[in-house]
């Protein structure tokens, strides 16, 4: 009665205003990071130089800004959103707080498939490798789930199965690169996770795919809210858990597969981001999913900018920065006595 407000959605939400504000703050942070990402690099620019680089085709800065740094920034935003959202979807689908497309072998599976397509089949077009990335991601996701014991998988078993799949996939990627250093020199940065090749990637396609799969993923929020109450309760509420999981895996495959094909296998973004997000938004997936996409962009762009600042005038690959930042967080989660239920 009195305790319920009339605001939408679900009743009694004093935190709704806060969560809307939070979204605005995230968008603001993304804008600032985007400017930094365009301005910083081996040749740092001031704001006015960035502006002329954006607007004046005759300026010195124009090619650097429009051909290198803008694509790099756009790819970082898109890939970060993809990985953050894929992690949130995976955690919600499995009710497993340790789920992450990086940790569960999805990104490595995609990477192994990409390397295969380049080395054995001589694919050089991005679109050709993208199909392989999807297949690799899907096979790794389903394989990991089955190895861990399907519906009876515990968080620990799933994480172990993921570690095994990741290790095997990574060994495969490394082995092929050692076999053929010359042709795969160009994949050296890609294989640790990097945005440096952004200008070689068909950005419209990548952003379009990630956007479409993000919309699809966010639309799963309501059934995922039902699934959070257990498979039995979800069935009672009219959700078919098998259909929902299959749909979710399809979205994760496109999100993680596209991000990996474009930037290489990047771990921990999908793990860390949803945890931080949930601490702020609470367990409602209607908020967790869009927040995770935006916060994923922030995480990825911040890691990339940081990598460029730390190793100037060279740079640290974004995948390495993400791993260094995310590793301790993963250990903290694993060592907590009670892992949060989702």
């Amino acid at each position: 009665m009195s305790a319920i407000t009339t605001t939408a959605p679900p009743a009694a939400q004093p935190g709704r205003g806060r969560r809307v504000t939070g979204l605005a703050v995230l968008v603001g942070v993304i804008a600032v990071l985007a400017v930094l990402s365009v301005a910083l690099g081996s040749r740092a620019m001031g704001l006015s130089e960035v502006w002329t680089g954006l607007t004046d085709p005759a300026s010195d800065a124009y090619p650097v800004v429009t051909e290198l740094r803008l694509p790099r920034t756009a790819l970082g935003l898109a890939a970060g959103a993809a990985l953050g959202l894929a992690g949130a979807l995976m955690q919600a689908m499995t009710r497993n707080p340790l789920a992450d497309p990086g940790l569960l072998g999805v990104n490595t599976g995609a990477a192994a498939a990409v390397v295969t397509s380049v080395y054995f089949l001589g694919f050089s077009s991005f679109i050709g490798t993208l199909g392989f990335a999807f297949a690799g991601a899907a096979i790794a996701a389903v394989g990991c789930y089955l190895i861990a014991g399907a519906a009876s998988a515990t968080p620990a078993r799933l994480a172990l199965a993921g570690a095994a799949v990741t290790a095997a996939g990574f060994a495969y990627v490394s082995a092929i690169q050692i076999l053929d250093t010359a042709t795969l020199e160009q994949m050296r940065f890609w294989s640790v996770g990097s945005l440096v090749n952004a200008h070689t990637v068909p950005l419209r396609l990548v952003v379009g795919l990630i956007f479409a799969a993000s919309v699809g993923g966010v639309l799963l929020a309501r059934p995922l809210n039902a699934l959070a109450l257990g498979d039995a309760t979800a069935t009672g509420l009219g959700v078919d858990p098998r259909v929902l999981r299959a749909t979710g895996i399809a979205m994760i495959t496109v999100l993680a597969g596209t991000a990996t094909a474009a930037c290489g296998p990047i771990v921990f973004v999908g793990l860390v981001v949803p945890h931080i997000v949930r601490a702020f938004t609470g367990p409602d997936q209607n908020w967790v999913l869009p927040y995770s996409a935006l916060a994923g962009s922030v995480f990825m762009l911040a890691a990339d900018v940081l990598g460029r600042l730390l190793a100037r005038p060279a740079e640290l690959q974004v995948g390495i920065v993400c791993a260094v930042a995310g590793g301790p967080f993963f250990l903290y989660l694993v060592s907590r006595r009670k892992v949060a239920r989702l």
Partner: peptide, 29 residues
């Protein structure tokens, strides 16, 4: 689900969910 409601033996309450939010999830169908 609009005709028949089910309370299983061990439903799961997500961490940090409020009573009102949990009850509201019954509106899914």
């Amino acid at each position: 689900a609009r005709r028949l409601g089910l309370l299983p033996q061990s439903p799961i309450a997500p961490d940090g969910i409020t009573v009102a939010d949990l009850v509201a999830r019954g509106r899914y169908p």
